[in-house]
Nucleic acid binder design. Sequence first.
DNA 1: GCGGATCAC
DNA 2: TATGGTGATCCGC
Length: 870
Amino acid sequence: MESTKEKNDNYKDDLLLRMGLNDNKAGMEGLDKDKINKIIMEATKGSRFYGNELKKEKQVNQRIENMMQQKAQITSQQLRKAQLQVDKFAMELEQSRDLNNTIVHIDMDAFYAAVEMRDNPELKDKPIAVGTRSMLSTSNYHARRFGVRAAMPGFIAKRLCPQLIIVPPNFDKYRAVSQEVKEILADYDPNFMAMSLDEAYLNITKHLQERENWPEDKRKYFIKTGSSLENDKPGKEVNKLSEHEGSISPLLFEDSPPDLQLPRNPFQVNFEEQNNPQILQSSVVFGTSAEEVVKEIRFRIEQKTTLTASAGIAPNTMLAKVCSDKNKPNGQYQILPNRQAVMDFIKDLPIRKVSGIGKVTEKMLKALGIITCTELYQQRALLSLLFSETSWHHFLHISLGLGSTHLARDGERKSMSVERTFSEISKAEEQYSLCQELCSELAQDLQKEGLKGRTVTIKLKNVNFEVKTRASTVSSVISTAEEIFAIAKELLRTEIDADLPHPLRLRLMGVRVSSFPSEEGRKQQQRSIIGFLRAGSQSLSAARCALERAGKGQCPNPLEVSQKKSFFDKKRSERRWNHQDTFKCETVDKQSLQASQSFQVLKKKMSENLETSENSDNCQMSACPVCFREQGIISLEAFNKHVDACLDGPSISENSKMSSCSRAPSTEVNKKENVQPSFLLCEKQDYETHQNMEITSVDCVELVETVGNPSKAEGVDALSDKHSKEECCSLPSRPFNVERCHQDSCTGSLENEDVESLRRQEALQPYLREVEADQALVCPVCNLEQKTWDLTLFNVHVDVCLNRGVIQELRRDQVNPVNQPKESTRSAGTSGRVQKTLTKTKRPGLMTKHSASKKIKPSNPRHTLDTFFK
DNA sequence: GCGGATCAC
DNA sequence: TATGGTGATCCGC
């Protein structure tokens, strides 16, 4: 989103971190800084938000204090050694300095606000902001004089500037304008890197070389009013200017910084048809230098969109970015590609201006007396002792004016998430319902990009603005709403349970999926799916595939059906009608129950169909699970298309025989002697309305201590019976043996060690990869047969079972009333998980660290910590 | 892998 | 009355 990075800092940074600098400008419209801060403070003080800000500030101060203590312990000898080491590294960096690229950073001025002003002349000359009452995305320069900025809540902005007009954002429009700009940028660097709708980096090195020999008319653009030609190619008329305001942009031609006045060279301008005021045409020729190229780019952007951009030109991205800020708005700045120019520019540059140095890093460095890049360089030895390698390397790069000289291609996406803020929600059933809705949304988004991941993370923010995340990773990739919710729900449940009997008072909830397989991994998976299809177990796989697709749109998916009226709509109507008490959860629950049931019916039907087809002897390759017509060996895509068509057809069961569930009748559940107490998992009475939201068999697990507690064991049986009735399938307690389950039909029981080894397995592999035609899916942990035959769901279930087992184990250990002071909102990270791997580092980061050990690690084998300190 | 933090936009 | 959403990365466990 738009520029918080104008680095004028959040209004609240001023509030909390300001060190008393004032730049009041008397005589100007707007407010002076003191007045602004006073108003903000009045609006803020006493709020929960402010309370949390203070808390966070204290934490930062603590970090600083720790850092200062470490600093105090550093001996001058250590410092001298560090100096040598760092300087060696600095020398290497210096030698690798590359000034041969010309990098441009383009930044649209107050983009969203500018678009709104362009399209609504009434907003001209008025202070406006784009956003909502709760949060602003950007403001125009007029509003900024009142202290109205991006990332400020609208209601505070209104207090600063009562006449402020808040325009709701229109992202489709901004995207369209952004696209127009990108088309221009592509002419100069087809591989340009867009950072957001209003910001991009270009490497114009190649363009400059080519341009060197361009004839003048290739660099000539017509300025024109009164026409509507669309072409803005060189030598052609540029886009009309009159559409919005009827004149050439006053900014570019009147208010621009001197270096930008166009036409700047009278000899380059041809006035044509000067006598016709309607069709005033002139042309301008741009030179071949980088500066001229960027002027041309900004000129074309303005001609095409009537919006202005600022730009920076420098030998690397770090500098280019800082430059684009220098003459904003509607200006540009260049750092010439020689070392001296770079160092002159860097000299007094406040580090906060550099991308990646945020307010916390700024504050920490300030505590060390570092504000400018020069100071950053001077303190390099100290920094190498106080910060992580990644961090001090980054600092050194900055202080030498170094940065990326090539634009990295966009890597693969690493995560996808949805989150929402709302007015307080404390009822568990509403929280589950909301969670379900978020999962559904996320699943749709994932589907759009064809992504599947292995980790689900939920994010919770309570009404005091305290944020918590809880994650769980399973062994096989997941992507459907059901699969995600199966995991998210367990995570949520753990948090809710942890605070009982107090409710979680939430103001935000989010769900994220990550751990996507690499490109390579996906290809492999794809191959194996096809292989699997061809190998003969195709019906199950195809049916699952079809079911997955069915769940994603064409069929009554409970998540989507219940979504017809979204949770937020409901909350809204609840608020609106709260006096009449019209809103009842039952409405929701009935809805989703109905939907859930219909979905179960469909699933069951398909399951039955499957069995029917598998029971027939001549089970062919690639038979459609819906119509059961043989599809031959066709591509997966074609196959899926066919299944989709079938599912879209008049009736699913039309072509298929119905048959009743043919599972073996229920036997006794979980004979006690076979069950290890710690890992006996079975269904339990859920939170009140949970059963109404239940959609898959996965969400049934909860650890119950059974040994020596027969009443609970009975409860298990009772519930199982209920379960059986509902599903018309029994739940035989089939013993399960992981090692042999692929060979035999799962005999033997899971010992404690088995569970542990199961957990310890480097299980990137699902527990089950394929299923025999008549193999029941029995969870090796809870020993319950799963209602699903969806392999992924089954594997998710097993993971959830295992995770819950471990969590419960830990919790049991911790339930020591003496040692466990009960804190209402915080359940300090007790999500005990099995952990091993370490993370890889990719981009240079900026995080600071304060533990004393191994501050200097060798980036170069010659400079090891050992040799350094010996 | 997890969770808290920081940062950018 | 009232302070956003998405994605990435890093650090210490």
